[in-house]
Every structure is written in C-alpha cells, then in structure tokens.
C-alpha cells in the first residue's frame, strides 16, 4: 500500500493547546483489544460528538504540544481508524510525533494554524510540499518540511509495512 501524501482534502476539527493523550483516548479504554471498538471513544472528553461525526480524510487542527503525556500508540492508531487524513498542529509532543509516523498517520507542523483555521473549514493539505490551503479563500499556510525519512515512512504506510518491504 502506497499512501498518498498530496491533496489530502477534508474538513477541519479545531482543538487548542496541550491536547494530551487522555483527551485523544482515555486510559480506561486501553484494555480494548479491538481498535475499531476503541476508536468509538476518540476525543471523547473534549469532543464527545467526534467519533460519530468524523468523515474520511477530515483534518485535525491543533495548537501547541498536541499528543503530550502517555506513550500510548493507541492515540494515533485510533485517529487512523476513524479515517482522519492528517493532523496539523503548531507543535507535537515527541512520542506522539514518532508514533504518528510509525502507524502511518500524516502529521504536519504549521505555526499559527489555529489563528487561521476554524471548525468545519474545508482544507487541502500537501505533505510533500508542506502546505495547507484553505479551500474557500485560497489562503496558503506554509508548514515545516518533513525529513525524507519521515516522508518515506508515511509513503510505506508506517513502520511495519516498511519493515516488511525491507526484510
């Protein structure tokens, strides 16, 4: 499976600063062995409507330090399972950032993104260009370019498919 990193088109779900891993998926659901079941509880605390209303390729927009706290890989995994196309944040917590690429969840850092993007806006993200476009106004925000290694990881669909390719 080769993942497309250009023209990720979806609606924005906007969050604030310091969305920690318990807000993405609470610790009490970690014993659920089925990710599809767990994904029903994505963002349950801050946005209880998220899991039922999210559509394929929707884009999470967040402020600083998205994904801080626990090392739980379930956090990016369930975002993949809910169909989230990409997370664009002003900064990411370290372990979440690494986990995102490992599980094939596209992540992009864009300074000040929460000052421009509002809930429900239609967006287009291009990871290889490092841009986010607001479809209605045509405004283009420039993100930090991804190292080649991270782009390769995403294109492969994550660390496990890449391991299998290289084996």
């Amino acid at each position: 499976m080769v993942k497309k990193l250009e023209q990720i088109k979806g609606r924005a779900w906007v969050f604030g600063n310091n969305v920690d891993t318990d807000q993405i998926i609470q610790g009490r659901y970690l014993t659920l062995l089925d990710y599809a079941e767990m994904a029903k509880h994505a963002f349950e605390i801050p946005r209880p409507e998220f899991a039922s209303a999210v559509r394929k390729n929707d884009i999470i927009i967040a402020g600083r330090n998205f994904g801080g706290g626990s090392s739980r890989e379930e956090a990016p995994q369930i975002l993949v399972r809910t169909g989230v196309g990409c997370v664009v944040a002003e900064s990411f917590a370290r372990i979440f950032y690494r986990n995102g690429f490992n599980v094939g969840l596209p992540l992009m850092t864009v300074p000040e993104v929460t000052a421009v993007v509002r809930n429900g806006m239609k967006l287009t993200v291009d990871l290889s260009e490092g841009t986010l476009t607001v479809d209605e106004t045509g405004e283009v925000l420039k993100g930090d370019a991804l190292p080649q290694m991270m782009l390769d990881l995403l294109r492969a669909g994550g660390a496990v498919p890449r391991f299998r390719q290289q084996k």
Binding site: S71, E73, I95, R98, N99, N102, G158, A159, V160, F163
Partner: peptide
C-alpha cells in the same frame, strides 16, 4: 526514554 508499541516491536526484532 519511552517509546510505544511499534518501536518496541522493532527493538524486539
């Protein structure tokens, strides 16, 4: 440092 499941699996391998 702490890593998660996929990195741990890669280290186990």
């Amino acid at each position: 440092t702490g890593l998660a499941a996929t990195d741990s699996a890669l280290i186990i391998a």
